[in-house]
């Protein structure tokens, strides 16, 4: 058996080791879902059918995105960053596996574990307080595919940010820039359907929308699901290819200090 499934499996197990901590995070996600749902209900009360959605769509979106948030790691970060700063990445490069493949497998395991552990509280809270739009089995399958693609796009973006440390030596400058772009253009701050028109069209073509807005829409059954999945897959492929190219350049760039 190849090593990658093992990396993913151990990353998943690592999440499970902090069960209570994940549940606590899930409670905070539920609370934020509640707040966002109330605010969006007030918005849709003023403007019913805003952006083609109704209030029930907006409420479901609030809780589903809170359930996804940890898994697609909207707040950014990859453990690889610290290893590049400290030079430990030399050990990673020494292994007879691809650097990108290793971290991608690790991230897929982490995302699966996080989704399983942290999506319960927000979904339960939404279902009990407001009632959520529950999709049929077909749409659940589409959503699962969309979720995997969202994690791939998220990894692609975070991997590029992490590799920039090979050149910048520090991620503290680029990290907040990535955070602002992600939170704003993913639909996390406000769903993209609320954006005024030219901005909404632009945001819809950027990779960040593939993290939160697109999986949310697939869950709601709004828009063309096949087109949405193709959009995510195209960005995932582009970002992973870019990551592979930059890995090659970084490998030639790295000088390990000390002896």
């Amino acid at each position: 058996m190849s090593v990658y499934p093992w990396i993913a499996w151990f990353a998943l197990r690592r999440q499970a080791a902090y069960l209570a901590m994940a549940l606590a995070e899930g409670l905070t996600n539920a609370f934020f879902g509640l707040l966002r749902a109330f605010i969006l209900i007030a918005l849709w009360r003023e403007r019913p059918a805003l952006g083609g959605w109704d209030a029930a769509d907006a409420v479901t979106f609030s809780f589903v995105t809170q359930a996804l948030l940890g898994a697609v790691q909207v707040f950014g970060g990859l453990d690889l960053t610290a290893r590049i700063r400290s030079g430990d990445v030399a050990v990673d490069l020494y292994r007879p596996v691809s650097l990108q493949g290793w971290w991608l497998a690790d991230d897929l395991g982490r995302a699966t574990g996080t989704l399983l552990l942290r999506s319960g509280p927000p979904l339960l809270c939404g279902a009990l307080v407001f009632g959520l739009r529950v999709p049929g089995p077909g749409r659940i399958a589409l959503f699962a595919a969309s979720f995997v693609l969202a994690v791939l796009v998220s990894f692609g973006l975070r991997y590029l940010v992490a590799l920039s440390v090979f050149w910048l030596h520090d991620d503290r400058g680029i990290q907040p820039i990535a955070l602002v772009l992600t939170l704003f253009f993913s639909g996390m701050t406000v769903p993209l359907v609320v954006f005024p028109d030219p901005l909404r069209a632009v945001a819809g073509t950027l990779p960040w929308s593939a993290l939160v807005q697109v999986p949310g829409e697939v869950f709601l059954g709004r828009g063309n699901a096949a087109g949405a999945l193709a959009f995510q897959a195209a960005w995932a492929a582009a970002l992973l290819l870019a990551g592979a190219a930059v890995t090659g350049a970084a490998r030639r760039r790295l000088v390990v200090q000390g002896g």
Binding site: E46, R47, P176, V180, L183, T189, V190, P196
Partner: peptide
């Protein structure tokens, strides 16, 4: 950068009020 991250919530409020008056 910190100021920009903190400004996101204000941008969110601005976006909501681009669609409604109250």
């Amino acid at each position: 950068a910190s100021a920009a991250v903190a400004g996101l919530d204000a941008a969110g409020i601005g976006l909501l009020f681009s669609r409604v008056h109250r």
